[in-house]
């Protein structure tokens, strides 16, 4: 546990020292959403109808931005090899790095989402559901993305490749995240959607670090 926290702290302090990372992710998130009113027109009804979907898609893309460098820098400077040799299980290392990734991207996205909900004219009743859906969904995005980030180490065209690998796997999270918010706004029971989102997270929590560790092992072999 102490080793786990040490890696989280190290990645967080690295992110803080390099600065701007989280800020950039949030800026991308906001900008991507702001493009939509220009694309579909500023009618409040139209915007309200697509708000949840647009915010979710933008969150998905924003979460992918910093994924590529999740293991890349460690892989290049050799510290990844040290981590594989450390007494700490590699699965725990992967999970720690994914937690740090979520704290620097997922969390800021959740914080910024009410602002976007206002801009996109989302029904006020949907705000808490939006935040809750993102809180349940973005950790899954970081977990699934972590596997992708581990797989592309040492490949050519890493970034584009990563999106090709990871985006199809994000579809279930997107579907249930959006429909949870839409159902809540429409006055329906959204419990099922939240349960599925939670289920995906619970399944991804053990499986993704395991798959990610397997990917790291073959990358450093």
């Amino acid at each position: 546990m102490r080793g786990f926290l040490a890696i989280v702290r190290r990645d967080l302090s690295l992110a803080v020292r390099q600065g701007m990372d989280s800020v950039m992710v949030v800026m991308f998130f906001v900008l991507a959403c702001v493009l939509f009113p220009f694309g579909v027109g500023p009618e409040p009804n139209v915007l309200a109808r697509i708000a949840a979907g647009v915010i979710w898609v933008a969150a998905l893309l924003a979460a992918m931005l910093s994924l590529e460098r999740l293991f890349q820098t460690d892989y290049e400077d050799g510290s990844l090899e040290l981590l594989t040799l450390s007494p700490l299980a590699l699965e725990v290392v992967v999970l720690a790095k994914i937690v740090a990734h979520w704290l620097t991207t997922g969390l800021p996205l959740i914080v910024a989402s009410p602002l976007l909900a206002v801009l996109m004219n989302l029904d006020a009743a949907g705000y808490p559901y939006m935040v809750l859906a993102l809180a349940l969904g973005t950790p899954s995005l970081s977990l699934i993305g972590g596997v992708g980030a581990a797989l592309i180490l040492g490949s050519r065209r890493g970034g584009v490749l990563l999106s090709l690998l990871v985006l199809p796997l994000y579809i279930p999270v997107l579907i249930f995240g959006v429909s949870a918010v839409d159902a809540a706004i429409g006055g329906f029971e959204a419990k099922a959607q939240f349960l599925v989102l939670g289920g995906i997270l619970l399944a991804a929590l053990p499986l993704c670090p395991w798959a990610g560790a397997a990917a790291l092992r073959q990358a450093t072999e």
Binding site: L151, I152, S155, L161, L164, L165, P168, A211, A215
Partner: peptide, 28 residues
Amino acid sequence: FLYLGYMALQNAFDDPERGFKASAILVL
């Protein structure tokens, strides 16, 4: 898309052995 991602990952490495292993994890 899953197929295309698999094929792209398979061909993204200079060392074919890496391509096999990485894409095997991806397909699983």
